[in-house]
Design a protein around this nucleic acid. Structure first.
Lengths: 191, 191
DNA sequence: TTGAAGTTTCAAAAAGTCTTGAAATTTCAA
DNA sequence: TTGAAATTTCAAGACTTTTTGAAACTTCAA
């Protein structure tokens, strides 16, 4: 067995296990990893053989990957068989995933918070006030996260802020870049 | 039923459903949300009653939350009963979660990549080369993500880069801040 | 148009994850 | 030190998610 097959197998395995991190099913993640490991696009027969999956499983996985824009489908002319090509512009891929998950998972949370906070304002108990303050600071944090994510989505943290500044900010032994900002709101606890 | 109870219930529900996003079990997430909704720390009896969970479930959930530094345990003097206080410094909380998940999930991936790339270099087939180039660009992306995460962990994206710059970078209608940087490596595909 | 190749669907089975509760262990006020 | 209170553990069961594969459907070369 040649080296590439070992690496392919380990990569497929690890990427499959990481699928849940991205919100992708293990099988979907494995199929993507397997496609990445091959120079040319593959059809479902090849994927079935390469990963020992059923026809249905491959179809489901490819459907999922298509929804995430992780693969493109193409048909060789004069054939009716689909071939799957993995997206290799990883920055774009990550951007897609982040955008979809933000919409599905973060935006609803934010909307609920904005609805709950006034409801708690209506109540006057100290309990409600503590709870409200906490939800407010959560909302603040999500707004911040949102603007970071938006920046990333709009096409490049790196090109806009500059890698140098990012690297610099990540090292505590260098002096900070200039700009400052007032701290995010903080929950004042009872002692 | 007063307003606060409605909000509490919805919040517990939603947060519980989002648990998997953070890598926390649904029950753990619910317990944390419930504690956040109360002004004072609670003991396990109260949590059991408030969320209709068994003693064991509460113990497991609190153990998990302690591991994530999402709650602190304290004992009222002269009592042997633990009371649980939710961490409300959310920026710190998020930082903890990100750090732990990074260690558990990202760092191993990066290590594997650094091991696999030379293995593929040893092989001379075009297939291996394509695969290697893709793994390299993945490694590049992870390195970049790493420096962003490190910066966040080291105590404040916001205070170091400045919220103004973040907001500005997230808006496409304003001119960009100065710094630039060469693009991340990109997989050159065969046509 | 036809029909074989190709794809998708979906109900059932398998796998995986979470919860329970009784028993074992630990803790600490007396 | 003692032992009742408190906590943790863990195997069994409940629940959730994922996978399968056979059947239904769609496509397109002939």
């Amino acid at each position: 067995m040649s080296e590439i097959d070992n690496v392919r197998e380990s990569f497929v395995q690890l990427w499959g296990a990481m699928g849940s991190f991205w919100g992708i099913s293990p099988t979907g993640a494995k199929v993507y990893a397997w496609l990445m490991s091959r120079a040319d696009p593959a059809d479902s027969e090849e994927i079935m053989a390469g990963l020992e999956l059923s026809r249905g499983a491959v179809s489901m996985a490819c459907k999922e990957l298509r929804e995430w824009h992780l693969i493109e489908v193409e048909k060789a002319p004069g054939s009716r068989r689909s071939r799957f090509r993995p997206a290799t512009d990883l920055e774009k891929v990550v951007r897609n995933i982040v955008q979809i998950r933000k919409r599905r998972e973060w935006d609803p949370l934010r909307e609920h918070l904005l609805e709950w906070i006034p409801q708690l304002e209506a109540e006057e108990s100290p309990e409600a006030e503590t709870f409200r303050r906490r939800l407010e600071s959560l909302e603040g944090l999500i707004t911040l996260a949102d603007s970071m994510v938006e920046m990333f989505l709009k096409g490049g943290m790196v090109s806009k802020i500059g890698l140098k500044m990012l690297v610099r900010a990540s090292r505590s032994d260098l002096p900070h870049p200039q700009l400052r900002f007032e701290q995010a709101t903080q929950d004042k606890e009872r002692p």
